[in-house]
Design a binder for these strands. Structure first.
Lengths: 207, 207
DNA sequence: TAGGAAAGTGAGCGCTCGCTCATTATAACA
DNA sequence: TGTTATAATGAGCGAGCGCTCACTTTCCTA
């Protein structure tokens, strides 16, 4: 198909990314073959290379377009919350929702990206950036709560943010491997309880 | 060297495992080559295969002998703590210590193992078992605290244990990638503060 | 409808890597 | 010191994979 619309090209590109994500998630980056990605994307190997210069480039694109936008997404979706506590608990709920709805694709993709980050500098930088962005956002939420008097004044926004982001990654990880005995709903309740007890000491306990 | 002592053989075996761990951690499992492991272990490729039947077997052995014993280790090292709260905070401290001392070897090995678990059923089972064991132990600590009246009676041992184990894994993960802006010491303080505020409501705040 | 430019094809090149095996070196023992 | 069983060697086999390129197909334009 010569001189084809930009829309067609973008569709193809997304189809390739879908295929690549599926194969990466299923086999891991190294064991995923170009042949299989091409086959699942519905085109030949040669055609695939008109869209992405290397296999590595597909992974990095996925990392940027499908994992790197999480921080921005959280910012946008919690924009209209009233007060720091509502924003914080909305973050927890959004995470739980994302885990259950987008499972297992995105979570496993994150795991694959992490593994590749050990070797690939660009992937490492991308993940570090994602982490820093999430950290910065959570930190700002906690700081907002302290400034408004909602949260205890001696809370450490930076440390608490790091805890929450690490926790999210850890839960995503164990969820990816489908560890039995993990009830995300109950974990949600306990996390909110702990945060409330710690940050809002006056009325601890209920959500 | 024919008819050699059992001690010699065990030393060789450990040398191979050391080399394998180093290369796995540096390159990831798939990109680690037998040639390099053999070279670092100080023997030839052929000799290496007298100790391990396959490359995969080296990884699984590392998972079992160097990662799978964490739960047992925690159990032993916290055996003499007095009371649930002391045991719980000792767990946190042991984790922080392990992170700083054994970094980056073990943490990264865990990450590599996780990546392989996506494809390798045996690795997946090994990691799930490790996770379950840790979960069971943390759960028992919380239950002990509830039974003795130290902890709030309505705490959810299972959910809290899952949170703590996931958190530990998440921190290990971000630490492996050397994410900047993460201060483990301050995270320790905040975690202990949160746990205390939630579990021991009477005197919240100080450690 | 003829011509051309862009999209698409897939066999195969060049290379890497896990693993083998014919051969050699070495330590214990008679 | 000669014998033997075992440890160790490393060139090379076979299979697989990322990527290329000479070629074909398809749609747009004049």
């Amino acid at each position: 198909m010569p001189k084809v619309t930009a829309e067609h090209k973008e569709n193809r590109r997304q189809a390739i990314l879908d295929a690549a994500q599926a194969v990466f998630v299923e086999k891991g980056y190294q064991l995923a073959t170009i042949d299989e990605i091409a086959a699942r994307g519905g085109l030949s190997v040669g055609a695939l290379y008109r869209y992405f210069p290397t296999k590595s480039d597909m992974m990095l694109t996925l990392l940027e377009e499908r994992l790197g936008r999480t921080p921005e997404l959280f910012r946008r979706l919690t924009m209209h919350a009233e007060g720091a506590w509502q924003r914080l608990s909305l973050c927890v709920d959004l995470f739980v929702l994302a885990l259950r709805v987008r499972h297992p694709g995105t979570g496993r993709l994150l795991l694959v990206a992490w593994g590749e980050a050990l070797q690939d500098r660009t992937a490492r930088l991308g993940l570090q950036r994602r982490f820093s962005d999430l950290l910065g956002y959570m930190k700002s939420v906690v700081e907002e709560g302290i400034a408004s008097g909602e949260f205890r004044p001696d809370a450490d926004p930076s440390a608490l943010a790091a805890l929450l982001v690490s926790l999210a990654d850890g839960v995503t990880l164990s969820w990816s491997i489908a560890t039995p005995g993990v009830d995300v709903r109950r974990m949600r309740g306990t996390v909110l309880g702990m945060l409330r007890a710690y940050l809002v000491p006056s009325r601890s306990g209920e959500e």
